[in-house]
């Protein structure tokens, strides 16, 4: 177990493994997103109340889930890096931050676009929207803190602590719609009892979620590889590559 942990933490091993996986993950992402786009925009019926406007769900929900997933992954990686002093873990955290920030921005932007016609407002300071905005600031804060430090080791530790501390925001975002009266509606997919969305609308959404997941993994591996190249530029295994 520990051997596997350390082997995975070794940059050359990761570099090779990621190089092998990237094309497969990329292809899976492309196929899933294409099918889900067709399913969501063409095959799925219009909503009884929102008409075609509901279709933004196929971008909004996957990006919002990815933003939470990205933050949890970044915080976990940063925590592992802080405790076990594994440099690769910090490289993963640093690679994930801009991707997570992009997904967060996309979730906020698509939510705003949907909110204007449906709710009647672009923005409301309700618990869900505000906590998601804080998530964006956490990602941006992590990135700025990294950029402010020239020494990679120091940047890893300072920004890593911010990432770990910020993880308390993740459950707040997820449960905000249950804990407080909010303008944002409750969860549709993760819900006990009868499904809140019909099957013909649901499958493109699930497929899009999987596609976004593969896309995230692909970009994360590409970015982590470039982090590794930069961090290990003086090491022997890279020269022999």
């Amino acid at each position: 177990m520990w051997k596997l942990f350390h082997q995975f933490g070794s940059p050359p091993h990761f570099y090779r493994l990621a190089g092998y996986l990237i094309p497969w993950f990329g292809a899976a992402a492309l196929i899933l997103i294409l099918i889900a786009t067709y399913g969501g925009l063409v095959l799925a019926p219009a909503d009884y109340l929102q008409g075609d406007g509901f279709r933004i769900i196929y971008v909004h929900v996957p990006s919002a889930s990815m933003s939470l997933f990205a933050y949890t992954l970044m915080a976990t990686a940063a925590g592992i890096g802080l405790i076990w002093r594994i440099k690769l873990a910090h490289a993963v955290a640093a690679a994930v931050a801009p991707i997570g920030a992009s997904f967060t921005f996309l979730a906020l932007a698509t939510g705003s676009i949907w909110g204007k016609p449906m709710w009647g407002t672009w923005w409301a300071w309700d618990a869900r929207l505000t906590s998601e905005l804080i998530l964006l600031f956490l990602f941006l804060g992590y990135m700025s803190l990294r950029a402010a430090n020239d020494d990679v080791g120091k940047a890893d530790r300072a920004s890593g602590l911010l990432a770990v501390v910020g993880v308390v925001n993740v459950p707040i975002i997820h449960y905000s719609v249950e804990w407080w009266n909010s303008l944002h509606q409750g969860a549709t997919i993760i819900k006990l009892g009868k499904p809140a969305i019909t099957g013909d609308m649901l499958w493109p959404l699930l497929m899009m979620l999987a596609g976004f997941g593969f896309y995230f993994a692909t970009v994360m591996m590409i970015r982590t590889r470039s982090q590794v190249l930069q961090r290990e530029r003086k090491s022997q295994w890279l020269k022999s590559l």
Binding site: P45, Y48, Q50, F54, Q185, G186, A187, A196, T198
Partner: peptide, 18 residues
């Protein structure tokens, strides 16, 4: 001076709603 509509978490085609 401002009225917003709160959408619920249910999505369905018109036939199902009917």
């Amino acid at each position: 001076d401002e009225v917003l509509a709160k959408h619920d978490e249910n999505y369905m085609p018109p036939e199902v709603a009917e």
